[in-house]
Design a protein around this nucleic acid. Structure first.
Lengths: 216, 216
DNA sequence: ACCTGAACACCGTTCAAGT
DNA sequence: ACCTGAACACCGTTCAAGT
């Protein structure tokens, strides 16, 4: 399942001046997003890039497109690191660690969580969605392994976990309290981990015995 | 701790026409928020109320003020119901039930979670903050009781729990999936409940007898 | 006291005109 | 092919002028 890495296709413009504008727009957007957050003025971005506003719209029809391209490398990196974790021991810890990295990712710019969570569910054919799909698949692989090893509750779904991470990041943003993320993720994973190898929290008849249970 | 009920003071205008405008603005805002969400155009609200935009600003200097007044009854009701729950059995269940009602409250209008979570942390002297403080105190009382009865982890903080509820509501909004709230709150409370009365989940050398729980 | 709405500043988006 | 920026539509906020 560990496919070759660069999957996100980016079709760049051909003409030299167009390509230059394109690159400058991305650089300007990155700077502007960093300063003003993900809702920074597009006009300002165009100005900073030394380009007409129409050119911005030509290259990036929607704000999400621009965000997606600016995040492109980070997205790829996050996915790659997640895949690498599939080979490391302690599946549940790896998942938790990757989720923590996901939180850093969605916190790159202020207000980014909103844009990402929106596109996460939009299911349209946007650039941003493409990234979300890859991230979801990576998380799914990590989760499935942790569930196979009986470390994470079998009824947990990757979508919920990822959205919870978004939520934790969103809260940290709103409250300006960076430590909130850790506390919230801590609670989340306390809820997700399998506590007892045999007994479940509710009355559940024991089916197959777990093959290699971490004896507390 | 169960204080007499109406605490939120609302100073209404005196003159007859002013009072009429005030009431019409609230009614218009309620309608408009319901239709367009909490970021509805203030201009539109003034128009619907048959009032100049300046009048709206006179009565409600900020959008949050308007929101607070529109929510006023619901806020009071939520607080009252929470206080009533203090006398009912099963503290943890009562807390969970109240949190579920909190989620309904913060979902009254689309986009409301953002406004509320912001003011939740703003700590300014706005109307909206006043409501948040009351809600926080109510939740605190419910949580303290559940902790006293050893039903909820002693290291849980009301702020995190309430913000998690906000987050769950926010996610349900973003994903347009109402069922997400229940699943997320389910995970949250699984993480919050005390699993074992004596033994804790992690390996912790018993220094003092376990009055306070260790994290992780 | 209170209301009105024109005026200002800002933003997103489109599109005719240019090279 | 691609770029430009004026033009349009919209929104929030203020304030001089009115009653």
């Amino acid at each position: 399942m560990t496919a070759p890495s660069p999957i996100l296709q980016v079709d760049r413009p051909q003409r030299a001046d167009a390509k230059r504008n394109y690159d400058q727009l991305i650089a300007a957007a990155d700077a502007e997003f960093t300063q003003k957050g993900a809702t920074a003025s597009l006009d300002e971005i165009a100005k900073r890039a030394g380009v007409g506003i129409g050119t911005l719209y030509r290259h990036f029809p929607t704000r999400d497109d621009l965000i997606a391209r600016v995040l492109h490398k980070s997205t790829q990196s996050l996915v790659d690191r997640g895949r690498a974790m599939l080979d490391k021991p302690s599946p549940a810890d790896q998942l938790a660690k990757w989720i923590a990295e996901l939180v850093v990712y969605v916190t790159t710019y202020r207000g980014l969580t909103g844009a990402l969570a929106n596109s996460y569910v939009a299911d349209e054919d946007t650039e941003l969605c493409q990234g979300c799909v890859m991230i979801t698949e990576t998380g799914e692989a990590l989760l499935a392994r942790a569930q196979r090893e009986r470390e994470i509750r079998s009824d947990a779904a990757i979508k919920e976990i990822i959205l919870s991470a978004h939520a934790a990041a969103w809260i940290a943003e709103q409250t300006k309290d960076p430590a909130a993320v850790d506390r919230l993720l801590g609670i989340l994973f306390d809820g997700l981990r399998v506590v007892e190898p045999k007994k479940k929290r509710a009355v559940v008849k024991a089916k197959k015995p777990p093959r290699r249970a971490a004896r507390r």
